[in-house]
């Protein structure tokens, strides 16, 4: 079984006249984790939104399992799940209601299988005790996990996450890492994740894509991408690096 992956070719996107993506190429195949890193406003979230179909590319081609991104309808929506950066909810939807919304079936009926799937995912994420709580009452981290639960319950071939560890403390961050690893290794999902935290990207990803000013500055294994030279040119700081288990981690910056 070899389903084509996510293919992004010569992707350009602009907000008005401000070009934020200037010809980006990336690939994600099933079973691998690709981390998108880069400074603020380098185009990471925009790239993710173009793949999800939320934004329409100005130029270039984006396909998910051979289907052009932005194809409307439930069938195309079943190819990928998306966890946005903001998880604010306007009204008191409960956690389990919001997770069940991830299942793209007819909205009116919730059958036993759906409920069992939702329950399993909530337990997997340690959210079972919060199932009946309204989302607006949860902490930012808990809401983030509920959004991840909604993405996981769908069991799509691809999983896209925008800063999923933003509001998480150390323990929950560790949980999130193991969940993404499980998604890629066991469930064979292709994971494309935007991360601010370079060290987390090094730890988690099979490949890292470093975006700078709307273009790919480097792409490859974490060790090849995260180097003193690249961090200096792309982020404009002089990093202190330590090597641990063959990978380089940023532990501070020179003044």
């Amino acid at each position: 079984m070899s389903m084509p992956g996510i293919e992004v070719r010569r992707l350009r996107y602009a907000y008005g006249r401000e070009e934020v993506l200037r010809g980006v190429d990336i690939d994600v195949t099933r079973g691998e984790i690709v981390a998108l890193i880069g400074p603020n406003a380098s185009g990471k979230s925009t790239l993710l939104k173009c793949v999800t179909g939320i934004l329409r590319p100005l130029r270039g081609r984006v396909t998910v399992a051979g289907v052009p991104a932005g194809t409307r309808g439930r069938r195309a929506a079943r190819l990928l799940s998306y966890v946005p950066q903001s998880t604010e909810v306007a009204y008191p939807l409960t956690v389990i209601d919001s997770v069940l919304l991830g299942l793209g079936r007819a909205s009116w009926r919730v059958d036993r299988r759906d409920l069992q799937r939702a329950e399993a995912v909530l337990e997997h994420l340690g959210l079972a005790g919060l199932a009946q709580r309204p989302l607006p009452e949860l902490s930012g981290g808990q809401r983030q996990k509920a959004a991840i639960a909604r993405a996981l319950v769908r069991d799509t071939p691809f999983l896209l996450l925008d800063e999923p560890t933003n509001h998480l403390d150390m323990k929950h961050k560790r949980d999130a890492i193991s969940i993404l690893n499980h998604s890629a290794r066991v469930r064979q999902q292709g994971v494309l994740v935007v991360l601010h935290d370079i060290n987390l990207a090094v730890q988690l990803a099979d490949r890292v894509v470093l975006l700078s000013d709307g273009a790919v500055a480097a792409c490859g294994q974490p060790g090849e991408v995260v180097t003193r030279e690249r961090i200096r040119t792309v982020y404009g700081v002089e990093p202190k690096l330590v090597t641990h288990e063959g990978a380089q981690f940023v532990v501070g910056y020179e003044r």
Binding site: A77, Y82, T87, V89, L93, G102, A147, L160
Partner: peptide, 13 residues
Amino acid sequence: RLLLGDETAISLG
């Protein structure tokens, strides 16, 4: 689904 935000709703089809 719209309560979850426009972006999430679009990604859910």
